[in-house]
């Protein structure tokens, strides 16, 4: 797994890479009395893929929702850098600017494709919406981009006018990924991108994601409870338990030589196939 690390390092030292893309500082989110996630701090560099693992209820999704600008953290700051434009805290922006940033600078792949797609709109329309939001008003160009992206996520372009309801679960997930990536974001958040898919479909989706992330030099944060997914896709790993980060480091390091008792339990509980 040294090749991905090398490529990540190469991007990180490029012209764009002399500062972190995303900076989380003491991100804490309470749900009333209960803790969602507490005091999470990290930097994410351009082109880097960060995994967040942990069992159900450990605060992974809460953290992701905060990072992606969907939920306001109770305390803490989330900084974002788009080229030379630095936003010290995305929640200090007004909602309009934050939405614009969410739409142009990053994308979110939801666990359930229904949350990320418009089910009443054709596949082409789903992909085109991000371009239209950006200001594209040329039907032909939008169409060409939609066909291109359907091919890149391995959906037959002949199905461009079909609705997502007519697609299988795996195709819906791939369509969602195309919809997110078409506007060329710098950063992609993925919440259990392979959840609910059968194993063979999962494998193809993982192949696709890995290729896309590497080809486009995307930074990504992937939430998963599947350590195999984490090992395949991520450069760096954070292990969460009860809302706190208990261990973090390079993916292979964390998985092969876990230090925290909880991480040891987690890696030991994976079934050998």
């Amino acid at each position: 797994m040294s090749a991905p690390l090398d490529s990540a390092a190469k991007v990180a030292t490029g012209a764009d890479g002399d500062a972190p893309l995303l900076t989380a500082t003491g991100v804490t989110r309470f749900y009333g009395e209960r803790i969602g996630c507490e005091d999470v701090s990290f930097d994410l560099w351009p082109g880097e893929v960060l995994g967040i693992v942990g069992e159900s209820g450990s605060g992974k999704s809460t953290l992701l929702r905060c990072l992606a600008g969907l939920d306001r953290p109770t305390s803490g700051r989330i900084g974002f850098r788009d080229g030379s434009r630095v936003t010290p805290d995305i929640f200090a922006l007004d909602e309009q600017r934050r939405r614009a940033l969410m739409r142009t600078a990053w994308g979110i792949v939801h666990q359930n494709p229904r949350d990320g797609l418009r089910m009443g709109v054709s596949a082409g329309g789903n992909i085109g919406e991000r371009l239209i939001d950006r200001g594209d008003r040329h039907y032909g160009n939008i169409r060409v981009a939609a066909v291109d992206w359907l091919q890149r996520v391995e959906i037959d372009p002949a199905r461009i006018d079909d609705r997502p309801t007519q697609f299988s679960g795996g195709m819906q997930q791939r369509l969602q990924i195309a919809r997110v990536l078409v506007s060329e974001p710098k950063l992609v958040y993925m919440d259990e991108p392979t959840g609910g898919l059968d194993v063979s479909v999962q494998a193809r989706l993982l192949d696709l994601l890995r290729a896309l992330v590497r080809d486009l030099g995307l930074a990504a944060i992937i939430v998963t409870h599947d350590l195999a997914v984490a090992r395949l896709l991520t450069d760096r790993l954070m292990v969460m338990r009860r809302g706190r980060v208990v261990e973090e480091g390079l993916t292979d390091q964390v998985l092969d030589d876990p230090q925290h008792p909880y991480t040891q339990l987690l890696t030991a509980s994976v079934l050998a196939a």
Partner: peptide, 9 residues
């Protein structure tokens, strides 16, 4: 415009 796109498609 997504609605118009759908019409044309």
């Amino acid at each position: 415009h997504v609605r118009l796109y759908e019409d044309i498609a």
